[in-house]
Design a protein around this nucleic acid. Structure first.
Lengths: 172, 172
DNA sequence: GGACTGATGTCAGTCGCTGACATCAAACGT
DNA sequence: ACGTTTGATGTCAGCGACTGACATCAGTCC
């Protein structure tokens, strides 16, 4: 993160990262699949939190609302590390390769979410569609939150986006 | 496409592609930004078709329905090249790097769609959210269509997914 | 105390990708 | 008709990401 922030992702070489970490380049690649993955090492815990929230949501909740619980929990988590999240987002926004990686992480999150919904009894294609839509809401809300100059409450932005979603499909 | 289908994306070297095309490796990189981009050379026309359909949709249509027009037009186009689309999808499904590239193309489509909606007078954040949701619908419908053993009508699958979307937010 | 295991270092090599320069043919202008 | 210009291609050298194979060495287990 230090090197990526200072001089950018592309201009940073794996040799440099390894040197600052006090290890060999080869060792770096034993810890991370590739140069980008360093910025996504927390993805596993993030997914667990999101999926866990959905799985433990009351059965009475509609699929989209159960998914929303996961998005809210995830948002609250990022809110905690707002400083770090902002810096990380800045690095990613400056590099297409990192954006690609982020997108596939989101996609992975989406399929995991769909699995969880299916475990709740939601059938296809509702499960996949709900998951995709929920992640779409999360992404747009995240962007609004991270770009916002004022320090808005992330979960609150999520709730607003969910309301927007409802308006989309009912207001016609 | 031939080489990627025969022996897979990873095991295909740019030198091989260049050789079969009768050019130099250097020339390959003058036509395509990188090894993956070969499979996405049609992205520009695809985007024009989708965006064009949305822009020329009746003003009376709600944002989500205008976006749906774009999705339907895009679906009809892919339906034409069903054979090719299927083979291409197979190659992409077999390789994570290609999936990443496809995702960022979808993201690019989403922002272009949001721009078009904004040109129709839709305000933020409704424009971005509508675009994201519309692309989510398209993606899930595409997956269902491409995976389907029976040769279903792609635009029809899109319409069904749109109905599902409405059900998601109203059925609770 | 010796075998085993896991993490690290070392080294050579492949492949994607780029910059710089040369070549050559077609198009252009006078 | 001929020199010029332009655009596409070839050639070559080189960087950096990533991998496989083998060696080293510490801690752990019988």
């Amino acid at each position: 993160m230090e090197l990526y922030s200072e001089q950018g992702f592309e201009k940073t070489t794996v040799a440099e990262i390894a040197e600052r970490a006090g290890v060999t380049e080869r060792t770096f690649f034993r810890h991370f699949a590739d140069k980008r993955e360093v910025l996504f090492s927390g993805a596993g815990e993030f997914q667990e939190l999101l999926v866990g929230s959905v799985a433990s949501a009351p059965d009475s909740l509609a699929p989209i609302d159960a998914a929303a619980e996961g998005a809210l929990a995830a948002a609250a988590m990022l809110q905690q590390r707002a400083e770090f999240a902002r810096q990380r987002a800045k690095v990613i926004a400056a590099n297409p390769e990192l954006q690609e990686r982020e997108l596939i992480k989101f996609a992975s999150l989406s399929t995991a979410l769909a699995d969880t919904l299916r475990a709740r009894g939601v059938t296809e294609p509702a499960a996949s569609l709900t998951a995709e839509v929920a992640m779409a809401v999360f992404r747009t809300a995240f962007e609004r939150w991270i770009d916002g100059t004022d320090g808005r409450d992330f979960p609150q932005v999520i709730r607003e986006s969910l309301a927007e979603l409802t308006a989309l499909t009912t207001g016609r």
